[in-house]
Nucleic acid binder design. Structure first.
Length: 586
RNA sequence: GCGCCUGUAGCUCAGUUGGAUAGAGUGUCAGUUUCCGAAACUGAAGGUCACAGGUUCGAUUCCUGUCAGGCGCGCCA
């Protein structure tokens, strides 16, 4: 519809110029928008005001000329000039009814478009370290990432959803060592658990399983383990040196093969827990990409070599640095430590190069906002490797601060004190949690009140939207109880009976859905869709309270039923994109 | 100190990429059900869009500065 109007204006403009009514000037992009106020018609354009300056004419004068030059049309009933020079269009009743037929014909496909057709996009999200279960802080990224993916898919992109598994690096060694120490404990050894180890109860579970499956295979005496280890913090030492000492000792005492077994028991257990958790949360993936695989395949070393030959690495203090300042970063970054180990950043350089080489047209990273300082160096590395850094888009998700009532909940993965995503899902439900997470724009800090979310109060808008869907289903059940049926053919042919203000409001709301989906997708803003759905639900509930659908006038009744079935379809489609169920009753 | 994000109704948040009289939910107050589900609906009250300048036909939106809050500034990941 917008496009039709755009062509309309454009042809009017060229006509006016050919006739010499307007000076020959370069045409700006014609902007058509829906009006906020019904009194202004359905659509409006500000083109006359935009042309005022280059044409050196009064905007209202331009508008008058344009309106005179508009071609004939049967889908517009009224064109008017208002305010400083807006041109307002009112659609014919017929054309606004058309959307209902489109919805019923397209069904679950209504609203999808082909804008992204032929383009591939990779979306990486969550990618939490597999050192413990996901907590509610990860939930927002999980919901946001999966809805952004669904949106892009809905407008035609071929979407590849990916989780980057940080299965290499020091944090994983700390986890492996934590598991081993708990295992030794389970074997009956007497030891003091390091203050910097992972203290969560899931570590105990993993250790118990390891003990049950392998017996005393990995048993070493606690005395041996703790000999010559720097003191821990509570004893006046350094907790980092203490845990690093323990890691080295674990590797030495166990040997590579056994250490790897312990390591994998922790990694696999937690990773499979994360997979199940995300799957149950409705956030599905096409690929789980292992950091370790990048190291072992030599891709990390290869990337470093590539940077070296590009002459953007230099040695200082025994380490290899990347000259990221040449590309706008605040300071240079280490890629190979003085002990010869590559940094996390080195893996990430290789990972992003790998993503680019896989040929995606667009690569989207969804990170917590605390990683924002990381963007310049990743983009710098891509530029240094002759890649177009603009193919990478990083979307930042602000933290959700958790509250229990008015009390802030303190969380720390290491200490094991956190509310897990699974707990949230079990208490609040997947639907409410997802909708709640996605309701706010991602760059907005968010207060997540557990009590509120748990309380099933109608503060939670997901019920409101779902209820609208269930209500339509309920009307249809009522219809059946009265031995009546919905006749689509009759309904569609009598749509002109829909003349009430509530009905007109619903019709324009329904027509907006494809536009909402598109702008939500292209701007990566799921909250636009969520807000649209609550608005649509509100218009429906208002209509419901004002009018009856099952009435004696059969034609009117069928027309109204047809309308609300279209509403139900759009709600179901929208909720589907968000990953929330559309129940028939609740 | 530097960088990024944020500041809109008592509270939680929108605001269609610069448009017409800044909107919802919640809370407060007053109402609606012999009738398809009241998880609903109607109405009222509630605002110096943090503050000060600037850009132009026009600014909550863009620019600069100030103030306030969050985050980041490792040879951690």
């Amino acid at each position: 519809m917008k496009d039709q109007l755009k062509n309309f204006i454009t042809s009017s403009l060229t006509a006016a110029m050919e006739q010499g009514k307007l000076p020959e000037i370069e045409l700006p992009d014609v902007q058509i928008e829906r009006t906020k106020d019904k009194a202004h018609g359905d659509f409006a354009t500000n083109i006359a005001m935009m042309l005022a300056k280059p044409a050196k004419m009064n905007p209202r004068q331009i508008a008058t000329i344009l309106v005179e030059s508009l071609p004939e049309s049967d889908f517009i009933t009224k064109v008017s000039i208002a305010g400083p020079g807006f041109i307002n269009f009112t659609l014919s009743a017929d054309s606004s009814l058309q959307v209902v037929k489109e919805i019923l014909a397209a069904k679950e496909k209504f609203g999808v478009s082909t804008i992204g057709e032929g383009k591939t996009v990779q979306v990486e999200f969550v990618s939490a370290n597999p050192t413990g279960p996901l907590h509610v802080g990860h939930g927002r990224g999980a919901a946001f990432g999966s809805v952004v993916s669904n949106l892009l898919s809905a407008v035609g992109f071929s979407v590849h959803r990916e989780y980057y598994v940080n299965d290499a690096g020091r944090q994983m060694d700390i986890l492996a060592t934590s598991v081993w120490l708990r295992y030794l404990d389970a074997c009956g050894e007497n030891l003091t658990f390091p203050s910097n180890g992972y203290k969560g109860s899931y570590v105990l579970d993993i250790a118990d399983t390891l003990h049950a499956e392998h017996g005393d295979e990995f048993l070493k005496s606690a005395f041996k383990v703790f000999t010559d280890i720097p003191a821990d913090e509570p004893e006046g030492g350094d907790k980092e040196l203490h845990i690093d000492g323990l890691i080295e000792k674990a590797k030495a005492l166990l040997g590579e093969s056994s250490y790897r077994k312990v390591f994998n028991s922790g990694l696999n257990s937690i990773l499979s827990d994360i997979r199940d958790d995300l799957s149950d949360f409705g956030s599905d993936y096409d690929e789980w990409f292992s950091e370790r695989s990048l190291v072992e395949s030599g891709e990390v070393d290869k990337a470093i070599e590539q940077l070296k030959s590009a002459n953007v690495l230099y040695q200082k203090d025994g380490a290899w640095w990347f000259k990221s300042t040449d590309y706008g970063d605040e300071k240079d970054r280490v890629v190979v430590r003085d002990n010869g180990q590559t940094t996390y950043f080195a893996s990430d350089i290789a990972y992003h190069l790998n993503k680019f080489q896989r040929g995606f047209d667009e690569v989207i990273d969804i990170w917590g906002s605390d990683h924002h300082g990381y963007i310049p160096r990743v983009k710098a590395s891509l530029t240094a490797m002759n890649q177009d850094k603009d193919r990478l888009k990083v979307l930042l998700v602000q933290f959700a601060v958790l509250y229990r009532g008015t009390e802030k909940v303190a969380m720390s993965t290491r200490s094991g004190q956190f509310v897990t995503l699974r707990q949230l899902r079990e208490e609040v439900g997947k639907d409410a949690a997802r909708f709640f997470y996605v309701l706010r724009s991602a760059d907005q800090h968010m207060d997540f009140d557990l009590e509120l979310a748990k309380s099933q109060s109608n503060d939670n808008p997901v019920y409101y939207v779902q209820y609208a869907h269930a209500r339509v289903c309920s009307v249809l059940r009522q219809l059946a109880e009265r031995d009546l049926v919905w006749d689509q053919t009759v309904g569609e042919s009598k749509l002109s009976r829909l003349v009430e203000d509530h009905e007109k409001a619903l019709l324009t709301m329904l027509a907006r859905y494809p536009e909402v989906l598109e702008s939500s997708a292209l701007n990566h803003t799921p909250h636009i869709l969520a807000h649209y759905l609550t608005d649509l639900a509100r218009d429906f509930h208002t209509y419901y309270n004002a009018h009856h659908f099952i009435v004696d006038d059969i034609e009117l009744s069928q027309a109204r039923l047809t309308l609300i079935i279209a509403v139900r379809q759009v709600i179901a489609n929208g909720l589907g994109v968000i990953g929330v169920s559309a129940p028939e009753s609740m």
